[in-house]
């Protein structure tokens, strides 16, 4: 910061020393991520998340019941078709609880992904009228999914009590897998939300994507059905790691496949960093295109 020289002429403008200095310039290719900026706007992040949660429950007739109905009904259908009719193996765990532990993180992921993909387009009026780091928008819509997850988790606790399954110390690692699920959703959400601004096709792609993705994730079936030599490829799906992790942490399944976990986690980090940079690059044009 330049210290202003004392000036004789009173009207001569001097450079101020004790104000925040902001520079506005044309965007230059790959910009810095400026994650510190995101931290500065953490309160806005909080308020937008809070708004999303509040509005969702206000506008629906059943409100929070949806958070329970969706995974429970899916569990019932899966239990009848895959557990009952197809008799898929479930690693010696009652099929309903086997699939429900996977549905929990999956629904969180799918919901967060869908919401964040549409978040920028949905916040058009904000983006064209106010400045804030645009990352706040997909970020907050991912976070808003956590409440639903929390509610559905209570159902899981009930199920476990019903089937007489106790928690193991591994459950302490649940937050880690929860974070991994959220990060996956955010990573993909960043790509899709930024693309959605430019190509509104994304709106139609997302429902298909989540549907296909669900079958590529060990939700209705066990990953032990996948041949050993293809495991690494299968683990490139970050949700494989998340779902495996959940089953391990909650049901205490024999052991955690560390290699496949690492592949999933590595994939998430790669997607996230790529997504952040892509998002940042596109950020400056959002207000002009929307």
């Amino acid at each position: 910061m330049v210290i202003p020289k004392p000036s004789m002429d009173n009207t001569e403008a001097t450079l101020p020393a004790n104000y925040i200095h902001t520079v506005i310039e044309p965007p230059k290719g790959w910009a810095a991520l400026e994650l510190g900026e995101l931290w500065k706007f953490r309160e806005l992040l909080f308020f937008l998340t809070w708004r999303d949660i509040k509005v969702r429950y206000k506008q629906t007739a059943l409100g929070a019941a949806w958070a329970i109905l969706q995974p429970v009904l899916t569990m019932v259908v899966f239990s009848i078709i895959f557990g009952g009719l197809a008799r898929l193996p479930s690693e010696g765990i009652p099929y309903p609880i086997f699939t429900f532990t996977a549905l929990l993180p999956w629904q969180l992921f799918a919901f967060a992904l869908t919401q964040s993909s549409n978040s920028l387009v949905g916040s058009q009026n904000l983006i064209s009228k106010v400045y804030f780091p645009r990352l706040v928008v997909p970020f907050s819509s991912v976070l808003a999914g956590v409440v639903d997850f929390g509610i559905a988790f209570l159902v899981l606790v009930g199920l476990m009590a019903y089937y007489g399954i106790g928690l193991t110390p591994a459950a302490l690692l649940l937050p880690v897998f929860l974070l991994l699920a959220l990060t996956s959703a955010l990573a993909i959400g960043l790509w899709l939300s930024a693309l959605n601004v430019k190509y509104r096709d994304i709106r139609y792609v997302v429902p298909f994507l989540t549907q296909f993705w669900m079958y590529a994730t060990p939700i209705a079936y066990s990953s032990s059905l996948i041949p050993e030599k293809w495991r690494w490829l299968y683990s490139l799906n970050p949700m494989t790691g998340v779902v495996e992790g959940f089953r391990w942490a909650i049901l205490g399944k024999s052991s955690l496949d560390v290699l496949s976990m690492s592949i999933s986690a590595g994939m998430v980090v790669t997607l996230l960093i790529g997504g952040l940079y892509y998002f940042k690059r596109m950020e400056s044009s959002f207000a002009d295109i929307l």
Binding site: L15, I20, T22, N125, K129, Y131
Partner: peptide
């Protein structure tokens, strides 16, 4: 207000900016 970025040139702002391009945004 940093909503859109310029194609050329430079702006230096000293101080916290509050912009009201509309009332009731959000």
């Amino acid at each position: 207000s940093r909503i859109t970025s310029p194609t050329r040139g430079r702006v230096d702002i000293y101080g916290r900016v509050g912009s009201l391009l509309e009332v009731g945004t959000g």
